[in-house]
Amino acid sequence: MTLHAIAPASTAEPAQATPMVRFNDVHKSFGIVEVLKGISFAVGRGEVVCLIGRSGSGKSTALRCINGLERITTGSIDVCGHAVTPDGKADLHAVRKRVGIVFQSYNLFPHLTVEQNITLAPRRVKKTAPTEARALAADVLAKVGLSDKIASYPEQLSGGQQQRVAIARALAMQPEVMLFDEVTSALDPELTGEVLKVMEDLARGGMTMVLVTHEMAFASRVADKIIFMHKGRVHETGPRDLLSRPETPELRQFVGTGL
């Protein structure tokens, strides 16, 4: 494992800037099962925050609450100056325009080419002109190293390529925050590497990122903050070397099996 240092992008921004994402005592229940039991944390501009923890610890649910894919039960989340609340859908559209998300299962639109996948949202949501949208697509595809796949359909691509297109699609909306929900869990190690590299480039470019990940080496290398979730709560928080000096027995046990 190489631990070459990358200057955290957050150093470029003054620390007093208001957080891009802030959880305020967020609870979330599915029926009678409480999945999030009051979590609070903040993500500053340009920060890379990794949510780690066992399956069922609530980390994916927490991530999906940020852009309203899951509706929170109580509490609130501030996202880019907009409030995500239990009832309010008023700000959801504004939030979604500013927050990009990438899923474990890529979720590209199968009937559209790579270019159409990327230009759809800018054209429909931001009313970007077609020529401008195409230029944008070429630009984000270059960022993920897939310029030659612009005319392909998703089914013609490997899993890693599809995931990079999914990242490009999210980037085309020029989001202020990117969410990654276990984006490499469906990929073999070789393809995982190409996706992680794209994410590392993004982080280095100053993108604010929240990741749910099982890639502990990646978290230790790139994260500005690691949040260990356990049984629906934020159990332990620390900088990127948190995993090498866990304080709670739960994290120690988790790291013991994970690294």
């Binding site: 894919l69 927050v99 990009g100 998300i101 299962s105 639109f109 429909r124 949501v125």
Partner: peptide
């Protein structure tokens, strides 16, 4: 049509109508 594609379209900010006509109905 897989639920994930609908979530992706929602997350990109597409309205219900756009989602229906661009993402759901064609496939």
């Amino acid at each position: 049509v897989r639920k994930g594609q609908i979530e992706a379209a929602e997350s990109l900010g597409l309205s219900r109508m756009q989602l229906l006509f661009d993402v759901v109905l064609p496939p």
